[in-house]
Write a protein that binds this DNA or RNA. Structure first.
Length: 479
RNA sequence: GCGGAAGUAGCUCACCCGGUAGAGCGAUAGCUUCCCAAGCUAUAGGUAGCGGGUUCGAGUCCCGUCUUCCGCUCCA
């Protein structure tokens, strides 16, 4: 497994230096695990989002998109299992510094009691634990641990910190008057916005199973340790698609979407050797099959996208909590059922990092008599923030005027950048560093025959082309 | 959260045993330049992360605090 931390740090610096990604609130010392996208980073992110959206919705006639709110009714998170599964009380041993989930610690101790034949005591202990957990009585739980002299298996001591609650979800108040406010959560995943709209979308779109609903949006998770740049952030963006299918067909649709999504990743111009599937052995509470698509980042293979066979877990729970029938009438087989779901869920920020990791290159261009190097972002043209730079070779003799005309011709169609400062070589290298795939340069000959040179970022090769063909040549590469 | 290291100009760093900050690159303005960074001139930019202590005097020594990085821990 590659672990090139130097390259990873270089990418982080490059992102900050060239307007891609800044630490959040940096003038106030920053905010841990939160980042802001700068002028070029936001363009790249948007281009990736658009490309995903188009390939999922426009290219699949049976998939439509929605944009659900971040705020959702609190019961949503009861139904999804997030409230019960991800708000665990934790306790640390002061000697070994090891952290335990309180319920795991006590359960393990109860098992030991069982083995020693003290099953009565074990049973009473677990009952007491459940009662205290239900009441969120952390003082009582700590006393329970201390009374039973439960020890840390590493240090062998019973020297514990106070119990603290670890909440996966961020909460806030809905309503302007605090005392009357209801506590609600910032969504920890976008999927539930799709599930709670299942009936609405099915009815209005008139789509028949199998069909999908896609969504791009922010989600929020309180990670215990959130580091590794934009790979793990507290506020992040997901691109998700839930595909509703007939029960019993989940195996084939799971295989279909695995293959389909892998194709998408490779369509970004990234070689197949940089990806792998990681099948989950231990499945989440909602899944009957799950895998990740992992990309080989400079810090090793890491998850970019998850593909989960979610069964009817979510819709069934929403039916139970909402008392609304989450059913679909399948006229082909003349049956009502709760659809099964295959989920594809890709991290947008992780995809940005993947594209940047793949694109970042430090090249040594030295020749016998001159040392030379460049840093280039070889971003696929269709995702690059700026598509075309327009450069007058010198800023006199009427060259800027011609360049300005080209600028005006091209800028309605794709993002262009005009620059007349510094030597031409310097301008080329600046464009390399922010990943601009094409530069056209206006010179004396342009005045005579209406041609310019086009310079390609990756090869640094140049061709002479007619000004009238610039738009067509660039557009061919970016769609 | 724990342990280790570091925090001086936008970036990379210097200031040797404490005497009130300097370079290169970058940026900006101009000059030069007919095709691939490091040609010339000028300008801007730092109360040395923050707070306290020792001292006649602290970027330099001590303490605290914050942030970042590395390792461990956690992660449907």
């Amino acid at each position: 497994m590659a672990n090139d931390n130097k390259k990873f740090q270089a990418i982080i610096s490059h992102c900050k230096e060239y307007g891609y990604i800044f630490p959040s609130s940096e003038i106030y010392d920053g905010l841990s695990a939160v980042y802001d996208y700068g002028e070029w980073g936001s363009e790249l992110k948007k281009n990736i989002k658009d490309y995903w959206w188009k390939s999922m919705t426009q290219m699949h006639e049976n998939i439509v998109g929605i944009d659900a709110a971040i705020f959702m009714h609190p019961t949503t998170w009861k139904a999804s299992g997030h409230v019960d599964n991800f708000s665990d009380p934790m306790i640390d041993n002061k000697d070994s510094k090891k952290r335990y989930r309180v319920d795991h610690l006590i359960e393990n101790f109860a098992e030991e009691l069982e083995e020693k034949g003290e099953s009565d005591r074990a049973k009473k202990l677990l009952e007491e634990m459940d009662r205290l957990l239900a009441a969120s009585d952390y003082e009582g739980l700590k006393q329970l641990i201390e009374q039973n002299k439960i020890k840390c298996s590493v240090s062998g001591t019973a020297h514990w910190t106070d119990i603290r609650q670890f909440n996966l979800m961020f909460s806030t108040q809905l309503g302007s008057v605090t005392e009357e406010a209801n506590e609600i959560y910032l969504r920890p995943e976008t999927a539930q916005g799709i599930f709670v709209n299942f009936l609405n979308v099915q009815k209005t779109s008139r789509l028949k199973i199998p069909f999908g609903i896609a969504q791009v949006g922010k989600a929020f998770r309180n990670e215990i340790v959130a580091r590794q740049f934009i790979f793990r952030m507290r506020e992040f963006e997901q691109m998700e698609m839930q595909y509703f299918i007939r029960p019993g067909t989940q195996k084939e649709w799971y295989a279909f979407w695995k293959a389909e999504r892998m194709k998408w990743h490779q369509s970004l111009g990234i070689g197949p050797e940089k990806f792998r599937f990681h099948d989950h052995v231990k499945l989440a509470h909602y899944a009957d099959a799950a895998c990740d698509i992992e990309y080989e980042f400079p810090i090793g293979f890491k998850e970019v996208e998850g593909i989960h066979s979610r069964t009817d877990f979510d819709l069934r729970n929403h039916q139970q909590y909402s008392k609304k029938k989450m059913q679909y009438f399948d006229s082909e087989i003349n049956q009502n059922y709760i659809p099964y779901v295959i989920e594809t869920s890709i991290g947008l920020d992780r995809t940005v990092l993947m594209v940047l990791s793949e694109a970042y290159r430090e090249e040594d261009l030295s020749t016998a008599d001159k040392q030379d190097s460049r840093v280039v972002l070889a971003i696929p043209p269709r995702l690059a923030p700026i598509k075309l730079a327009i450069l007058p070779l010198v800023k006199k003799d009427g060259l800027p005027e011609i360049a300005r005309q080209i600028m005006d011709q091209c800028k309605p169609w794709f993002r262009c950048f005009y620059e007349e400062k510094d030597t031409i070589g310097k301008r080329y290298r600046r464009m390399d560093a922010i990943g601009t795939p094409f530069c056209v340069t206006v010179d004396q000959q342009s005045k005579e025959d209406g041609t310019v040179t086009i310079r390609y970022r990756d090869s640094m090769q140049q061709d002479r082309i007619e000004i009238s063909r610039i738009k067509e040549i660039v557009e061919k590469q970016i769609f």
